[in-house]
Every structure is written in structure tokens, then in C-alpha cells.
Design a protein around this nucleic acid. Sequence first.
DNA 1: GTGAAAGCGCTAACAG
DNA 2: CTGTTAGCGCTTTCAC
Lengths: 362, 362
Amino acid sequence: MGKGHDSMLTAAIAPTASYEWMMTMERRRRVSLSDVARAAGVSTSAASFALNSRPGVSDTVRERVKEAAVQLGYVPWVSGVALRTGRSGAVGLLIRNLRNPFFLDVINGFDATCAEAGLGVVIGSADYTPSRESELLSTFIAREVDGLALAPIGGGSAASRWHDATAKPIVFINAAQHAPDIDASRVHVDSEGAVRQAVKHLVGLGHSRIALVAAPKEHSADNERTGCFLALQGELAFEARTISSEMRHDRAVEVLTNVLEESSETRPTGIITSSDYLATAVYSAASDVGLRVGVDVSVVGHDDLATSRFLSPSLTSIAVDRYGLGVAAARALIHQLGGAGTSTVVVPTTLIARQSSCPPPT
Amino acid sequence: MGKGHDSMLTAAIAPTASYEWMMTMERRRRVSLSDVARAAGVSTSAASFALNSRPGVSDTVRERVKEAAVQLGYVPWVSGVALRTGRSGAVGLLIRNLRNPFFLDVINGFDATCAEAGLGVVIGSADYTPSRESELLSTFIAREVDGLALAPIGGGSAASRWHDATAKPIVFINAAQHAPDIDASRVHVDSEGAVRQAVKHLVGLGHSRIALVAAPKEHSADNERTGCFLALQGELAFEARTISSEMRHDRAVEVLTNVLEESSETRPTGIITSSDYLATAVYSAASDVGLRVGVDVSVVGHDDLATSRFLSPSLTSIAVDRYGLGVAAARALIHQLGGAGTSTVVVPTTLIARQSSCPPPT
DNA sequence: GTGAAAGCGCTAACAG
DNA sequence: CTGTTAGCGCTTTCAC
């Protein structure tokens, strides 16, 4: 589809690939169910029943069919099944972005768990763009993925569109408050607990001006973090301030440089980020304005990436089982596919104190 | 399929999902091509031709059909197309493992490029296990992905099976010498150049006993690296040694600890790893045996991860455009899908000297 | 307990 | 230029 000038339009209609290649390509003969049936000397329907372990075929036939299937190396052709049943045996994983190493482990856990269950994984990155998220959603629907794991950006439109169009299972990753009207499983880091741990740690060290770096509201589900952070002022003695920044490293450095350039009376002495990845942006910004992390300014990251303990200074961070998060998301989806209801999993966090956090300069 | 005792067998036959869920699930009515055709008042074939920008329909009809499609929010149902044409509009990405952050950027570039072309991405991690690789390959074939990007492990069996079964495009990622008999695109880091740069750097600093950490032969395509490394002895004055280690961080630390425990007369003074990720294993091992990286032992990593310059000591590393690698792989695949022949892209590397490499102790 | 047949959504050959 | 039709591989009634 879409050659030349009208490609934009057709893209809007059909966000599928637009090659006209290989029209001529020999199409390899594939081993079909009827081949298996013929080899076993039974009808296709009998073969189908046999392989799907359904009642209605004798044990001898069942045996013979299975043998033939193995012999021929038969693998059920997904498009046939999907067309007939509406099930593709794959699930979609729609992630906010693919730049933060955080998601690598999530993907890994998700993928491994799905693989174990025989489920394929179709992946997509919204890249923090709502339109991209929406587009990907369309392709996931069109591919008839059986379930969706969504780390959403923006409002709940993607989730409700998915729900309306498919009525299939969905699990939210790290979006506890997202689209509350939708019956979804929810798997997320205990971000409130994490913020509490970070603030307590810094207040315990003596800090009184603490800043939280958060993504702009429309880009993430950082609202809980921010809300909890501000609420903590009622409980602990410190002055809270939020720094709104895009998640891109270079942009974050700019914003943070501006903050750290303020006079030592107003600038925060402790900074809490939502990722270790962003924490290194504080390192860069501090270095740019001549401040020393772990001396002049304290930093608490989030994720405890493998390399964080080797940073200079080593980074105080909130550790979270990212792989486990991916596993939990996959499990929630698989349970729903098995007919169970939705569930919620909150993954706990642990603060790992290192050299980037210290008492504030006096 | 597969309930209870026979699930193993059916799994072998059909590595597809085995839920019997939602048999009862209402199947949402979907907007089909015939709906569009009806709305536009033409036949389905006319609608198909119109949307696929093929000759054989009048412009007015074409216009009317497209309008109707947009109106109804029509998205072509992939399984229908795939069943009919053998093309799914998706490509498979089969990666060695999902633990090394290296691949995150590769995935990112790959995904973004495919997305631009309207291609879906099905992902899978072989997790360094040949059987897993083979299994995933089966599901990719069964899903009729239109092309395969493969970072292979072990022999070329996966590649040749893909080729035999599908005759569809394939691109090798970081496996220059892999399966030379297969007509594949090849996209890879200039690993020989990288090894050369690393060795030259260390020799230039005065090192004479240099070790290269490489994966066991059957797990990776590190052969070129090793070969080139050993060959360099003819050209530069140094003693080469290879350390074979699994890629898992904890296992690597063990192996490296053993090496660094050797006496200062025999142990290498410079160590070259195949990833920054593994380089931190040297940091750990050195710390375990009381040696200082950047003083007692020099380390050169590979990948220049975002956090590497913040490591303590900052890590000398070979920078490589990982995102670009993913883009190149996707492009090679897309070109082949467009009917072009196979191609080879070698991604160059740059050595970034930092504090982890220094003159050897005297 | 078994087989024949319909039809999921789509495209491509063919007839009008 | 347009419409009818067959059939991709599979599951699932429905008759036997």
C-alpha cells in the first residue's frame, strides 16, 4: 500500500508495512494440519482435536496424529489459528521508551515468562509520544495480540480504546492510578514507599531543602511520586520543591544546571531523581557548575543499575527488582488469559546508601 | 492444547500458547474490508485494490473507499493478510540475551526504524541457549514474520533452518563470519578494529602482558576478536592471553578473580573485555583481590555505556553507535524486503581513553 | 467416534 | 474498469 504521494493517507488508514516486494517470491510449501491428517490417515478435524487434546477422538488416533505431527515437524500456522479464533498466541508490550536501561530488565523478565508459557512477545516503544502510542496500539489490535502490557503515557485513552476494541486482558506497568475505571491488572513499583525512603534518608542526614525531579505530568505517571513527596512535608521537616524535566538526558542536564546555579541559600541540597539514568544528569550538571556530588549536593537515584555502585561518587539509589516487575506483569496477563480476574502487584523498594548522599554543606 | 501430562509432547509439536481461556469470550465485531466496501458501495476486491494503491479502480472509487476506511477506522486484519499472502508485516528480532544493556539501544534503533516502515517487531531472547534459539525460530516461522534479524549463538543451524523453511530475508547482527554459505545481510561492529585499537592503546601505554576476555566459542561470535587479538602479536610487542568466561556477571567475576590472584609476574597488566558490562566484573574482581583498577591493572571496556564515564575510575572504552547498529540492521532487512540484495555494514568504533587505563606498574 | 463442510478476513485470478 | 469467486490453515458445528 501507499506508494508515493498518498502514503501519508494510507498510513493513517493502515499502519501496516507497505512493501510490494516479493510478489514473485516463491512461497514455500508449508506443512499444514491436513498434511498431518493425511499422513495419519484421518480427517483434518480429527487431527485438530487430537493435537488440541480435546475429547472426541480415540486414543489410538490421537497417538498416531501426534506421531505424524512430530515426524513432519508440524507447527500450527499462527495466522490460520488467529483468523479462526481471534487468538494469536502473542501478547503486546507497549513501553514508554526504550532508552532507559530500566526497561531492559523488565523486558527480559516479561519475555522469559511469556516464553515459558509459549506466548510470543510483540514489542513497541511509544517514545514518549502519544500519537506513537496510539499507532502502536492499532497495530497490536490488528495483530490480534491476546493481551497487552502497557506502560502508558498521557491519559487513559490507549487503555480504554484497547478495552473497547478487544475486551482482552490488559496490565498496567508502573501506572497505579492510571485509568481507574478500567478493569486492569496493575503491576508497579511502590513509588510512594520509594519517595518516602529517599526523603527520610536525606532528612535523616540533615537536609532541609530537597528537590524531586519529575517528568512533565503528561509524559509519565509520576503524579503519585510528586503527590507523596509534597505530602511528606506534613510529616517531616523539610522544604519540598519539584523540578519538572523531560526524560532526555541532555535536556535534563540543562534544567538541572539552571537549578544548581542558584545561590547556596536557595538551591536544594538534596536531589531525588526517578532513575539512576537521570541521576547521572545531576552529576553532569553539578560538574558543569563546579559543585561536587556527595559533598556540595546529595543525589538519590532510583533503579540501582548494575553500574551505579561503580559511579564516582557511588550512587545512593533505590533498588527495585526490575526483572521481577516484568515477570509479575507477564504473570498477571497470563492469569487473566487463563480466565482469572485482574490482580495488583506492588514491587517493594530498598534504599542502598552510598557516597552520593551525605550531610548537607554547613 | 496440552493439558496435564501430555503438555510436554504437544509443546514439542506446537510451541504456541496453551491456554483454553476465553473460549466463551465474546468476540468483538471487527471492522472488515467488506464493511468498508459496503459503506463505499463497491465490491470487496475493488476496496482491496483501492486501499492497496493498485491499478484497476477509478479515482473516484479509490477516493470513496479511502474515505469510508477512515470513517470506519478500518485497520487491515493482519491474520487475514498473512494467511492469504504469507506476509505478516512484522519482522523478528532474535537476540543472544537481554541482560547486556548493549542490546537495549540496538533494539531501540531497530524498533524505531521498523516502526517508521510500518513493520511490527516480534522479539525473542535466546538467553545463550541453543534450544531456546531453535524454539524461538520455530515460532517466528509459524508467525510468518517477513524477515529475521539474528544475533546468533552456536553454529549456523538457526540461519539455515530459517532459510530453508522460508527463503525470506535475514540479517546477521554482530556475526560477520557466521554461516558464510548463507546469503544474508551482515551488520556488525568492526570488532577487529576495536581489538586493534584497544591493544594499540595498551601497548602504547607500555603494557606487555595483555588479556582478552572472550565468551566460550559456542556462545558467541567472538572468534574474530580472539583471532585478531592473537594475530596482533606478530605486529606489536606484547604477550597475548585469552580468558574464557561466561557472560554472566557473577561467573565472570569468579574467573577474573582467579586470574588476578596470580603473581604480579604472570598476571596480565591490561585486560580487554567485550563489554563495559563485563568490565565492571574486572572492577569487582580487582576489588576482591585488593588491586586498584587504573593503577595496578588497566581495563579497556567495549560499548561506552552512558554510565561508564561516571564509573570509578572512569572506564576507558570502545565507543560504538549501538542505536545506529540497530538502525542498520533494520534497514538492511527493509531493503531486502523491498527486493534489494543483501548488504554488509560495518559499524566503526572509537576508543575513549579514561582513567581505567594507565601505564603498567613497574 | 469420525468426517464433511462452513467460514474467519483477505487477495488475486478471472469473468463480465 | 468492476464484481464474483476461490482459497490461504485452521477450528467447530453438524450430520453420519
